[in-house]
Amino acid sequence: MTGRSSSQETGDTMTGNPAAEDPGAGNRPPRGPRPGGPRDGSAARAAAPRTGRPGPLWAVPGLLYFAFFAALPMVLVAYLSLTSWGGLGTPRFIGMENWSRLVADPLMRQAVWLSLMLTALSWIVQTPISLLLGVWAAGRQRSRAVLSAVFFLPLLLSSAAIALIWKALLDPNFGPLAWLGPRLGLGSVDVLGGTNSAFLMIVFVSAWQFIPLHMLLYQGGARQIPPSLYQAAEIDGAGRLLAFWHITLPQLRHTITTSSVLMVVGSLTYFDTVLIMTGGGPGTSTTIVPFLMYRAGFESWELGYASTVAFTLVLVATVVSLLMVRFTGFGKMRSTREGM
């Protein structure tokens, strides 16, 4: 399904389109000259010197902010990663010791693997669901507004609240599962106590929490697709599936990139739910990289080593998002409306 009305009042009258299947076709913004079109562009260029173009000076506040709150801390963390420091006294410079320890640390290796798994599984679970929900929510169905509001709810809760709610729901002795388990013949169900099940629950809860956000992105993206594309497709006899495949998906490619980068970076730095729901356990089964960083820094008080883990995370997240932007062609700024 395209989930998107292909009918438009003007379109119906002009073409006698049989696709008046959607009685709720709402108001569309009136068609006007498209901003950024070639003719408008030349006019804007002529007017440019008078309105004043942004000079490099305009970037100073942003740069200062970035320097103090992003660049400087990163430099300090890079320095700390070369020291041994317990939070008291002076950090002791120890060269590359933390880094060689990091490479040899089996816990770090496991954490990297778990983080990659979490990222991959999160993307695989969240992208299709939020894409379909988003495209559906962009339509004009009657149930849409109510259901969208319901789906949207998790986004309004804080991560800590979500983690606590799910922890209580999954309690093996006093939660609903404790009641349900024996009635389904499963005996006791200790979901957060099992190695794999605890990890899958983290994937599930993060999906539950973040799908609404990505649904919102896709909804916005889908609403931007010009209806004329669907009208043209309909004239050519394309069904909903084909229209979805050949119009909706390609038109959403920038949204997919945006949403994917958010998902990937978000999963790589995911932390609060793990801390509250499983505390990295059972054992170390859910100790992903950010949690390992917390554990090293604020439980073991090895802030030097924690900085090493943190800096690795910064590097990996930066490289991954750069690669994603590059390989999806997002950076080329090619419009999805080319040729229109």
Binding site: L72, P73, L76, V77, Y79, L80, T83, W85, G87, G89, T90, P91, R92, F93, G297, F298, L303, S307
Partner: peptide, 20 residues
């Protein structure tokens, strides 16, 4: 041993940033 002054400044600042 590096300059301890820079070290302690770096340390204190980083700790402030790490722990709210």
């Amino acid at each position: 041993m590096r300059t301890p002054r820079l070290g302690s400044v770096a340390g204190a600042t980083a700790l402030c940033l790490l722990a709210a």
